[in-house]
Nucleic acid binder design. Structure first.
Length: 294
DNA sequence: TACTCGTGGGA
DNA sequence: TTCCCAAGAGT
């Protein structure tokens, strides 16, 4: 007789005993603080988010406070977290919350989903972690842990929101308070123990229920995951262009931007895309600036 | 569905 | 050094 995979009692006890003390997990953290953390943590490690999160919550403790800031201020405060479109979407979400939701972060998944920058993961993470709602929270860690412990695979296959949510819904404790704690515990397990590269099975609290371990830890045999290149891509060039504008106190002349990348064709394409994305604006005299920074 | 969108640290 | 990847969303 083997234990069921991902036993809630065991995982929640393990989480209570070992969870990292992150500021957005503290009881005094507001739903707004949780939302800001979730957006910042999208594809971005905890260590880089923490200092920026503190600064944001100090400057903008409510959605309406952020909504009152300019886009340029917000982009500078975002710093080098990466994917700066997230900052503009968070600003837009804050504006919507201030105008249409009485300055209170919604607790309902569908209402959250309607806000910019909030997708299947973030909507449920906010509902669960800020409001204790019982809903499946599925991020890359949860997908990997479930793939191993439940399905005995080396890693998760391609994401499918519908299937992934149903998978986790089946594991979720019935009790509302336990459900949110359980989701946090499974995520934490994936982050610190059941990691992508070298899982620390010796430290795993639910090893005896793990199908992957029981099967002898077979290698992942699903479709190859596309590798993210960076050097030489438009993402790198956009980052370099935006870095110039973040560091300047106002509009800059074209030549300043031309200096960051030799390939004029790629440079122009990237600058155009930044204008389209609303991350850059052109002034009447032909210079370039962060939105609102002139 | 597959691809794009930043950045930096660790294996 | 190179490569992988880290609490996804939007199109």
């Amino acid at each position: 007789m083997t234990s069921a995979a991902l036993d809630p009692d065991v995982l929640i006890s393990w989480f209570d005993a070992t969870a990292r003390d992150l500021p957005w997990r503290r009881p005094e953290c507001t739903p707004w603080g949780v939302l800001v953390s979730e957006i910042m943590l999208q594809q971005t490690p905890v260590a880089r988010v923490e200092p920026v999160w503190h600064e944001w919550l100090r400057r903008w403790p409510t959605p309406s406070a952020l909504a009152a800031a300019s886009q340029a201020e917000v982009l500078r405060a975002w710093g080098k977290l990466g994917y700066p479109r997230r900052a503009l979407r968070l600003h837009a979400a804050a504006t919507a919350i201030a105008e249409h939701h009485g300055d209170a972060v919604p607790s309902d998944v569908d209402t959250l989903l309607a806000l910019p920058g909030i997708g299947a993961y973030t909507a449920r993470a906010v509902a669960a972690f800020a409001y204790g709602r019982r809903c499946p929270v599925v991020d890359t860690n949860v997908r990997r842990v479930v793939a191993r412990a439940v399905h005995g695979a080396g890693d998760a296959g391609p994401p499918s929101t519908t299937r992934d949510l149903a998978d986790v819904e089946a594991l979720l404790p019935a009790d509302e308070a336990d459900a949110a704690r359980y989701s946090a515990a499974v995520m934490e397990l994936g982050q610190v123990v059941c990691t992508a590269r070298s899982p620390r099975c010796v430290d795993c609290p639910v090893l005896d229920g793990c199908a992957w371990h029981r099967n002898g830890r077979p290698a992942y045999n699903g479709p190859a995951k596309p590798v993210q290149k960076f050097a030489g891509t438009d993402r790198q060039v956009r980052g370099l262009l935006l870095d110039v504008l973040r560091d300047s106190s106002g509009p800059v002349v074209r030549a300043r931007l031309d200096a960051v990348w030799a390939d004029a064709g790629q440079r122009d394409r990237c600058l155009d895309s930044l204008l389209v994305d609303g991350l850059v604006e052109q002034t009447d005299d032909g210079r370039f600036a962060l939105p609102g920074d002139h």
